[in-house]
Structure formats: C-alpha cells, structure tokens
Design a protein around this nucleic acid. Structure first.
Length: 838
RNA sequence: GCCGAAGUGGCGGAAUUGGUAGACGCGCUAGAUUCAGGAUCUAGUGGGCUGUAUCGCCCGUGGGAGUUCGAAUCUCCCCUUCGGCACCA
C-alpha cells in the first residue's frame, strides 16, 4: 500500500494547481455568477501565526466550496505593508524598512503557499508599492478638492515611544494600542478626513448590513454615537454674549438649576473676572491641567467650582449660576451642559456635593417623587410639571415643543451631535504613504499635480536611533517648487495612517494590474461588494468603519458603484493555548510551520476547522491535531487498501440501484452517503459550521469502514452476481469530494488515484438524491407524560393512526399506561409520540 | 456602572424550527496483535440504583422559579467567565 507521504503529495499538488492556473479569477467570464471571497490581508511581520492559519483556512474553504458550486471566484491575497514594526526592526537590526518588509513578504508568501490556499496570486500587491499608494495619493487630492480633507490644529494623542500621533481609536485605556505606553496630549497641526460628513450614512447603512454580526454593528453604532437634541443659548447676565449648550433633554429645560462648563472651556477664566472667584477658578484650571490627559477621564468623583458668573434662563429669565465641572468634556457637544439635577444622574451627584437646588420637572407616570427625598435622578419619561405653559405635556412630546419655542425666540435650535470625530491621518513616521501636498510660503497649501504622482517615499533615507522620521530633514525630499507659482516650497513630510491603505485594498484586488487608473470601474462593479469577508473581531470598529467610509467616498468620486464594501462578514474567534491568547510573552505560541512540517498542511487545516465553529474561540490541542492526522490516515488507507477494486468500479445508476436492491447493508451505505452530502452542503454552504460538516463525514467514513471490514458478510447478504463496489465507490467519492475544500491535497491525490484525470477542485459539488437519502422506516420516540419510555420503528408513510397504535402497544410504554386513562396523544411526525395519561 | 456573548461529560464540542441531551473527536478502561513500548484493530465510556440485569428506573445542560403534553432551547430573578463601552450631556 502506498504510504501517506503528505509533504511530497502537498508540494506536488500545489505545483500542479499553480501550473494549471486553477485559482485565477476570470474577469471576462460572464457565464458563471461571480463570488468574491476575501480574508483580511496580513501585516508582513515575519511569519504567519495560528490566527492567520485559522483566518485563511476558513476563507479557503469558502472559496473552494463556491468554485465547486459553479461560481467564478475571486480570492486574492496581498500585504498590508506600511507600518511601525518595519521601522522598529530597521532601527534594531540596522536594516531598511523596505528590505525588512519585502523579505518578510517573500517568506510569508512561501508559508501561505505551503498551506495550499487557493489564491489568485496574479493580483498580489503590497501597499508599500508606489504603484499602490500612488492611487491613494490621487484619492487624497480628489478628496481635498471635494472638501473631504482638511488641515487643522488639534489636541492629539501623542505616543512618545512611537514618536507619532495616534487616532482616538488607537488609544486603549489611555495607552498606545501598539506599544502600550502612556499617551500624552499635544497640540499639533495635521490632516483630517471628514468621516463625520458620512456619519449619518454610516449609521443608516448599518441597519441594512444583514450579513454582519449584530455585535460588530452595535459597536459601530455606539462609536458613531448619534444624539438627537437641541442647542440652547444661555445669555450671560450683565455681559455680552452667551453660553451655548447641547442637550438631548430639552424637555427638562425648566429643571435647570446651574450650568456646567469643561475646565478647558475658552470662557472659563474670563467668566470669573471681577466676581471674586478669579483665584478659585485659576486654581481649579491649573490643577486640572496638571493631571495627565489620560487620567482626567478616569476621575469618577464629581468636582467643580463656581465661576462667579450667571446666565439667564432662556424661557424663565431666572439667573442661573455657572460652574466648572471635571466631568464635562470639551471635545463633545459645546463643552458646556445645562445641569438638571433631578433628571440627570451626574448633575444630581454634583448638586448634592455642592448643595445646589434640585428642581423636579418630569413626573413619572407610576410613582410620586419629591425633589427633597430623591436618592437618584429620574432619567425616564413622564409628564411635565413646574414647566410653565408646558405643564401636563408628555416628556417625549415636550422635547419638540420646547425646542420649537426656543427656535421661535431665537434662543436655540434642533441639533444632532455625533461622538464620531474626524479621522486624523497624519503620522510623523517614515514608513508610510507620503501625503501629496506642498506648503508654499506664498500660495499656502497646494496639492501635488496629478501628473507628478506618485510622491515616492525616498528609499535612501536614514532612520535615527530614536525612531524619528527622517523626512523633515531630508532635503532631497522636502525641498520642491510650488506647482502654482514655481517658487521654492516645502513638501508635506507627514505620512498617512496605515489604515488608509487597508480602507480600499479590497477594491484594488478587482483590477490590481491596471496601470492607468486606480480602479477599473467596470471590473470593480462586476466583483464588488465582497460577498464574504473573513477576519478578526479586533477590527470591528477601526478597519471596518474606515473601509465603509472609503467605499462611500470612492463612490462619490465616481470610482465605485456600491454603497458598502462587504455584504457578509464573518468574525472568527481567537486561537487560544491553555485558555489564553497565544503570545510570545506568555510562551504559549504554537508555530504553524513546525506543525505543517510534522503533519502536513491538510492536518493542520482539518484540526483548526474541526475544533470549533469559526466564530468561537478555539483551544489549540496537540492531541486534537494528532486525531486529525489519524483521521486523514484512515481515509488514505481506506482508499489505498482497496484501490484496484475501487478503480474498476463503475458508478452508473444501474449498478448502484441493483446493488442496493440486493443488499440492505449497501442500501444503508448509499442512504448514509446521500444524507451526508445533504448535511455537509448545509453546514458549509449555509452556516460555515465546518466542525459539524467534518464530523458528518467522519460518520460516513465509520460506516464505510464497517462495510469494508465485513465484506464477507456483505457478499453473503447479496444476491449472486451483484457487485458491491459501485456503492462503495460512490461513498468513497463523496468522502473525498466533501472533504476537498478543507483538505485539498490529500483529496486531490486520492481523486487521481481513483483514476480521474480531472482536478477535484474543478469538480462539481456533489448533489444528494433526496429519494435515496430518505429512509423507508423511521425511529420514533415514545413518551408517556413527557418521559421517554420506548422507541418504535415504523414505515415512513405510516398513518398517524398506525403510529399511535404501535406506540401504545410498545411493552415498556404499555407498562406506564396500564390502569390509567390516555387523556391526549401528541404526535409530531418524524419525531415522537407523547401519551398524556392520568 | 452600562451593553453584548457565553456557561452542556475528564476535555474540545453536537443537538439548524420547543420534540429521543451528550453526535463527532480527544482522553480513559478492557481485549486482540506485539519480546516490550508505540502504532493499529475491537468493545465500552454522563452520574446513580444488587433493581424484574443485552432490559429498566431515578438524577442530569451554572443556580432558582415559571410557561408547556414536552425546555439545553422560551420568560423572570440570581451567580460565574469572557469581550466591548466607560462621565457623550
């Protein structure tokens, strides 16, 4: 018997596939429906890890399955190649980020190829290729012209270790998402993408993304954080001007007893002038400034100080004191809030702390409240009281009524506020796409002309030990001429956030080799949106929201015709070892290369698909891996051990039907074969539950082994002259075909061994015959008062009457029914009979 | 604190629509083979019951209550674990 030489087999099959160009997507074939399967492309960090193996195994099953289902499949791969680790490695090892990156890509490409992933490698690119980022620079300029890019000075999150600005999303718990060092606050001028212009569409669109996990959509909605309310002006008492506040509860306007301003509010110091509160305010603000920005938000205790100033209530004319309060955020709304202690918990705590009045204006429908003995604010709905002309109104209705009144008086207006901030994309790093802008002392900011693109990142730059970008001091780079006035000018030396590259790479894959334009509109339209996107949940907000934003921008720039990039999203769970995420620091990393060398790519793929459904976390198990290997070995021996009979067998309908008519064992095997096809098709095609698909094939293999181990018995069972091998071959072929998307090499090899000269990955997915899959008898459970008391086997088409009679005659059932009256008989066809007795 | 997901044998997990809980795999036990170990094959494997022992009973899906002829699945309360958000006015 031939040995299962997985390494030789896998390499040979991979070579065959490559030579035959099996996985190239056909841009021009319109006879088959198109399907775009995509996995999140990796950062070329050096080597692949188990997370990649899982991600790409899942994606590959989908791609291969859809191909067999007759789709023209696009399944590309590339490299998210800009980023800091390249710079860090360059500094540490005295190499160049480009060299490091391209060498890693070389290595990792080999690793991916060794896994037998069915990619269209002709579309591969790295985002650090000038031929890629040149188009990104073009988009930047076009967005700039449309007002979607702007420059502003802002307080930014600065990571000293990484020497760069971080987006809000890259700050976790006040620390840098990458190096985990504390983030500082800094004022810096930088470039922004106006993602807020799409806030509403991003939010609306989230309700139409039926193929996304609800969890991801919820996270995005929270991130966008839309609040509907009103902006209200409180005129300063005795001064010019007013203080603007944003509130979602205009219905509580009559309950305002003070105003709270952020300590960073521009009016903070000014308000106290001439009130005797100057010192107190000064101290409070100074104290506030001494607290590191990252810790400010963590303070939970409500603290504040009176500014000495008063504003006028816009409807009642009352004087309202103005406070500074440590919980008011400058970056949200207007940096000032109207305080309604009776109906906002924070205001309530603040008021209690400083002995400020609490005025009840919303009375809940089902209970009586007194301002004096409340122990928490009432934030729910109710009926308005103490609210002048609005008394008696429902609080929901009052929101609009009061806003209308304010608008009529010119003291306020409806307002929608978002938590989402514009996307700061400037990075003071070297290894990124240069921002194609020029600063001219005479003309100001000028875009690089389109015909001068790309602005190439100079490769002869020198990185200093501290990791600071060499670009601002590299004259050959920054020194240029103004495209408008031809005078001396300076190039922008910031580079783009690497999330920009990953925001449109999926679109570029549809026309990766187009050298004349960023996106071929027709090709993009023919492939997009991505039918199935697969990746980690850690990108739920960042990458996925940016990609959605970019898709809408590119649509509005005329490049794309779709509104959303990914129709269906599968977020796979993590790979754990000993209950924890694999990491170098924990020392629990399992090296995929090593495992592949030891057991082969098919075994590793099989284990990882079998151990858990894709969306759940997966616990790595060496034993489980061995189990997967053993199973493949069983399949191998099953086929090779009977190879000459199997090769001879002809699976024509006549032979199959004759054999199953002649033998109950063979009839049973055929039935199991077709049931398995049904089950696996559903599990892969509809649920992506590869674990149960595999276990179903295992059951078929078990039954097949039984039959083969007992061939003598089968032959006795058979009418003379009937050949059992067609039925056995049908089962064997089903096993091989059904497993092929998951373990493509061994199945390809066995397919050839059976005498096929076709590629299995080009075969049609098997179709179950429901007639054969259906059993002629069926086992039903019989319950008495809901407890299982027996089992009966009846003909499929048995009448309800027959079934009930059989059930009641079943000895053990009869025992429990004896001496009692049957009150009711519940009959669930194909499932059970339940006798209710008393 | 708020939101979400999860909790099923020794372990990973299955039960797709309220209908025979524990499929499949790992591990374990016994047997066969072997000088031995490993590998392989066969059988068994949720807990309890000397009980009318190839059959049957009781208990059992984090805990408690409920709806139902019937609940791992639905409802309510509680516990634990993981993830996200965390003063967003």
């Amino acid at each position: 018997m031939k040995e299962y030489a997985f390494d030789e087999i896998e390499r040979r099959q991979q070579e065959r596939w490559e030579k035959a160009g099996l996985f190239l997507a056909d841009d021009h074939d319109d006879t088959r429906p198109r399907y775009y399967a995509l996995e999140m492309f990796p950062y070329p960090s050096g080597r692949i890890h188990m997370g990649h193996v899982r991600n790409y195994s899942i994606g590959d099953v989908i791609a291969r399955y859809m191909r067999m289902k007759g789709f023209n499949v696009l399944h590309p791969m590339g490299w998210d190649a800009f980023g800091m680790p390249a710079e860090n490695a360059a500094i540490k090892h005295g190499t160049h980020p480009a060299k490091w990156t391209y060498e890693n890509i070389e290595y990792m490409r080999k690793e991916l190829k060794r896994m037998g992933l069915s990619y269209d490698w002709k579309r591969e690119f790295a985002t650090c290729d000038p031929e890629y980022y040149r188009w990104e620079q073009l988009f930047f300029i076009e967005m700039y012209e449309k007002g979607l890019v702007y420059r502003k000075k802002s307080k930014v999150n600065w990571c000293e270790t990484c020497q760069t600005v971080l987006a809000n999303e890259q700050v976790e718990d006040g620390r840098c998402w990458r190096c985990k060092d504390e983030v500082m606050e800094r004022e810096l001028e930088g470039w922004f993408f106006r993602i807020t212009a799409y806030a509403d569409e991003l939010l609306e669109g989230s309700y139409r993304l039926k193929g996304w996990p609800e969890k991801v959509l919820t996270m995005q909605r929270n991130w966008i954080g839309k609040s509907v309310g009103a902006e209200i002006d409180f005129p300063l008492k005795g001064h010019q001007g007013n203080i603007k506040v944003f509130t979602t509860r205009p219905d509580t306007l009559f309950g305002v007893t003070f105003l709270s301003l952020s300590p960073e509010h521009p009016l903070a110091l000014e308000l106290s002038k001439g009130t005797g509160q100057e010192r107190a305010i000064q101290e409070f603000v100074e104290q506030w400034n001494r607290i590191p920005a990252t810790e400010r938000r963590m303070q939970r205790e409500k603290k504040g100080v009176f500014t000495g100033a008063y504003v006028v209530h816009p409807l009642t004319g009352e004087a309202i004191p103005v406070f500074l309060a440590n919980f008011v955020l400058m970056e949200y709304g207007t940096g000032a809030v109207m305080a309604v202690p009776a109906h906002d918990q924070r205001d309530f705590e603040f008021a209690r702390q400083y002995g400020l009045p609490i005025k009840l204006v919303i009375r809940p429908r089902d209970k009586e409240l007194q301002a004096e003995d409340m122990d928490a604010a009432w934030e729910g709905p109710g009926v308005l009281v103490n609210s002048g002309q609005f008394d008696g109104l429902d609080s929901v209705v009052a929101k609009e009524a009061i806003t209308d009144e304010l608008k009529r008086l010119g003291r306020g207006s409806p307002k929608i506020t978002y938590r989402l901030r514009d996307w700061g994309i400037s990075r003071q790093r070297y290894w990124g796409a240069p921002i194609p802008m020029i600063h001219c002392p005479r003309c100001g900011v000028v875009a690089v002309p389109r015909n001068a693109l790309p602005v190439r990142l100079p490769l002869d730059a020198h990185l200093d030990k501290r990791g600071r970008s060499p670009l601002p001091s590299l004259e050959e780079f920054y020194s240029t001429k103004c495209p408008k006035c031809d005078g001396p000018a300076r190039r922008e030396t910031d580079t783009m956030d690497t999330f920009v590259e990953s925001s449109w790479y999926f679109a570029r894959f549809t026309c990766a080799n187009d050298i004349s334009s960023p996106l071929d509109k027709e090709l993009a339209a023919s492939w997009l949106p991505v039918d199935q996107y697969v990746g980690g949940i850690e990108h739920a907000i960042l990458h996925l929201l940016y990609a959605r934003f970019f898709t809408k921008v590119l649509r509005d720039l005329g490049y794309l015709t779709v509104d959303e990039p990914f129709s269906n999203l599968l977020t796979q769970g993590m790979v754990l070892k000993d209950g924890a995420k694999m990491s170098k620091s924990k020392g629990n990393v399992v090296d995929p290369d090593l495992m592949i060398r030891k057991y082969g790519a098919d075994t590793v793929r099989l284990f990882i698909l079998f151990a858990a459904p894709p969306e759940r976390d997966l616990e790595w198990s060496d034993r489980g891996l061995e189990g997967a290997y053993r199973f493949l070995l069983r399949v191998w021996r099953l086929v090779q051990g009977h190879i000459s009979y199997l090769r001879e067998a002809k699976t024509d309908v006549g032979a199959l039907e004759a054999a199953s008519a002649a033998s109950s064992v063979l009839r049973g095997l055929r039935q199991k074969t077709h049931q398995t096809i049904e089950k696996v098709t559903g599990d892969i095609g509809e649920r992506f539950h590869f674990n149960t698909a595999i276990s179903a094939v295992m059951e078929l293999v078990n039954q097949l082994s039984d039959v083969l181990n007992n061939l003598g018995g089968v032959e006795k069972d058979i009418t003379a002259g009937i050949d059992p091998w067609p039925v056995i071959r049908e089962a064997v072929e089903a096993v091989i075909l059904l497993l092929s998307p998951m373990v493509p090499h061994i199945t390809e090899e066995l397919w050839a061994e059976l005498g096929h000269d076709t590629f299995i990955c080009r075969e049609n997915w098997p179709v179950a015959d429901p007639q054969i899959a259906r059993a002629d008898t069926i086992k039903l459970a019989v319950q008495v008062n809901g407890k299982l008391r027996g089992q009966i086997e009846v003909a499929c088409d048995a009448s309800e009457q027959t079934v009930k009679e059989r059930a009641i005659k079943e000895p053990n059932v009869a025992r429990f029914v004896q001496g009692k009256t049957v009150k009711k008989v519940i009959y669930v066809p194909n499932r059970l009979v339940n006798l209710v007795v008393r």
